[in-house]
Design a protein around this nucleic acid. Structure first.
Lengths: 207, 207
DNA sequence: TCTGTAAGCGTACGGCATACGCCTACCAGT
DNA sequence: ACTGGTAGGCGTATGCCGTACGCTTACAGA
């Protein structure tokens, strides 16, 4: 009947994401997003209740980019979980500034739940059931979330490593030595290596 | 010579922590901390450069409460790492509002580095060396960090579980079923269970 | 007792989220 | 073609926030 809406949720989320990618988390404000869209600040409030909902939209937008189709059933369950973990890490890692938001809003995201659903299906296919499956899912999620953050908020590798390598070796002998090794371990191998540990344990003793 | 300082860093950090515990992260402001200390807002700036440094102090305060002495060498390396993980989780979990800050500032914290140092020592004692040790430390850290956040920012167990249990079962069959199991798995068992997976993998195939 | 230094305070500014009320573009029914 | 009502979009104002800057004041050494 009256004037039609001029914005889709996707367009809104994309604009906010553009601001995030350009100016970082600190640069994300209702004003900035409105400007990005060429509309007034208060106009945004026709589409979201408050800033938090805008953040939720961005997270949903980013997470909905991860493919949650079960990976080719020709491969082992282990490889399938690795694929799922990489997909999540890649999608979030493509927009480092949203990492903190992802943590806060993940549990209300449909796309996030779909990811979990697929992982649960894979685990079930591997014969993991009941409480053990609960713990496995949660363990995987914890690891992936933690790893993404470590990678993007002061990692053991990267520039942080340099600082660590300069610690007083008498007080931090292991850290100093480890930092030297760490420089040679790329982020990808670190991520997959830790994941492999987890999967070794998952497939091992208990099952 | 002139007027002596009236505040210690510890006292400042405690005041900020009190505000955090009482009013949450959103309630933490320079004004609020100043009021907590009975001084003017700008007086704080004699002790910290900016808000970020205040946050750093709080994180350091919280992390310095974790005992980083190596646990009794009578026990297995596995038990020792479990003890270290629990200590970190307990210290941070005692102040849920600082969880987000911990992530942001962890890598600049002496206490955090000491924790890593001790864990590295334990790993070394278990015969884990070189790049494998880098990956093990990072994997453990990722898991613990992720698990703490999952626990305090919308966990799979807790109130989130109820919402998940109400998902449309036709679209989320595994999630619905898992949520029912999840309600029976306490946070502690979840944490230790996931950690056990990781440790199984760490002690398994590779070593 | 006097004086220099640093502690602590008050004011002010710009930016933030957002409540509220107005104007206006649009579509439906006539 | 005209008009009425609805909802989109905007401007203004309020009360937070962090913090720059300059003043006042308590203290320790002389």
């Amino acid at each position: 009947m009256p004037r039609p809406r001029s914005l889709t949720q996707t367009r809104l989320a994309s604009a906010a994401l553009a601001v995030l990618d350009r100016d970082g988390l600190a640069g994300l404000s209702m004003r900035a997003v409105a400007q990005e869209l060429g509309m007034s600040t208060m106009g945004l409030y026709r589409y979201v209740d408050d800033r938090e909902e805008l953040e939720r939209l961005v997270v949903e937008h980013v997470l909905s980019a991860v493919d949650t189709e079960p990976p080719g059933p020709g491969t082992s369950w282990r490889e399938q979980i690795e694929v799922m973990a990489r997909r999540l890490r890649d999608a979030v890692g493509a927009h480092p500034a949203v990492v903190p938001l992802t943590i806060t809003h993940r549990h209300r995201s449909l796309a996030g739940l779909r990811w979990s659903e697929t992982v649960l299906a894979i685990l079930t296919g591997a014969g993991i059931e009941g409480e053990r499956r609960v713990i496995a899912l949660r363990g995987l999620l914890s690891y992936v979330i933690g790893a993404i953050q470590l990678e993007h908020l002061g990692a053991l590798s990267g520039p942080g490593t340099v600082a660590i390598a300069e610690l007083p070796p008498e007080e931090f002998p292991y850290m100093s030595e480890t930092a030297r090794h760490a420089r040679k371990v790329g982020a990808d191998r670190e991520f997959l290596g830790g994941l492999a540990m987890l999967l070794d344990g998952l497939g091992g003793p208990g099952a």
